[in-house]
Design a protein around this nucleic acid. Sequence first.
DNA 1: GGACATTAGATGCGCACGCATGTAATGTCT
DNA 2: AGACATTACATGCGTGCGCATCTAATGTCC
Lengths: 131, 131
Amino acid sequence: MPLTPDGDLCERWRQLMACYHDVSCALERALSQRHGLGVSEFETLDLLVKSPRGKQFVHELHSGLHLSQSALSRTVARLEKRGLVTRAMCANDRRAVSVTPTEEGRRLHAEAAPTHTAVLTEHLGELQPQA
Amino acid sequence: MPLTPDGDLCERWRQLMACYHDVSCALERALSQRHGLGVSEFETLDLLVKSPRGKQFVHELHSGLHLSQSALSRTVARLEKRGLVTRAMCANDRRAVSVTPTEEGRRLHAEAAPTHTAVLTEHLGELQPQA
DNA sequence: GGACATTAGATGCGCACGCATGTAATGTCT
DNA sequence: AGACATTACATGCGTGCGCATCTAATGTCC
């Protein structure tokens, strides 16, 4: 039984949901238990660490994450409170806030990334990459 | 750019998330605005209406929905409060609770189903049904 | 039949989310 | 420059979720 049998839309949606929830829950559990990070927090940290400039404005992060603006704002606040990122006002545009990962943030990300990959491999690996 | 380029796992996960959130949010908005139903509520109602016996036990619904047992319990409670389903104790096993859609529930489902299909078609239709 | 495990469902609790709104800074238009 | 719209972010609020736990009923084993 293929992952996307071509069948009706409803069936595709069902399978998409099933797959998403499976991976999503597994990620949440693994990241949370082993590193004390929620999925949103990890994804945010991930974007920051992989950013070329080493930092991102909040609205830049917003376009790369599936989070409402308010949720993102609070996620960054949580990360800052835990010392994983710092927030700084931008000089050019004093409305903008740039977010920079701290050393601790980079360390935790490096620690959690393998967990992230492992879960993805386990839950998304064998599921026919295509075909 | 194919939906699932075979690329690395991370990219597939990103696309899966993007697709899921897109459809999920669109569904939530449409069902909520036009029919006052959340996605979980619609899915629950949908399972009930399409059930051969015309009713389902809560734990049967549980295996067909991506909801925790507690979330499902509350979802059914919400549906009952709005008169869309009725809960009844099972005679054979007095722990079990069977859930039956009311006429109003069936009516609302019939009304909302086209919305559901429309959103799915719009957001999941053109996305290469397969390869 | 009595002790213990298991199953079905409900509920207390804390949390992350989205929506609406608030605040402040910037852009635009005349 | 002054009025108004827009952008960037924070925050009050309500809601749905998962986890842990509780109650009650059923199953199991001696």
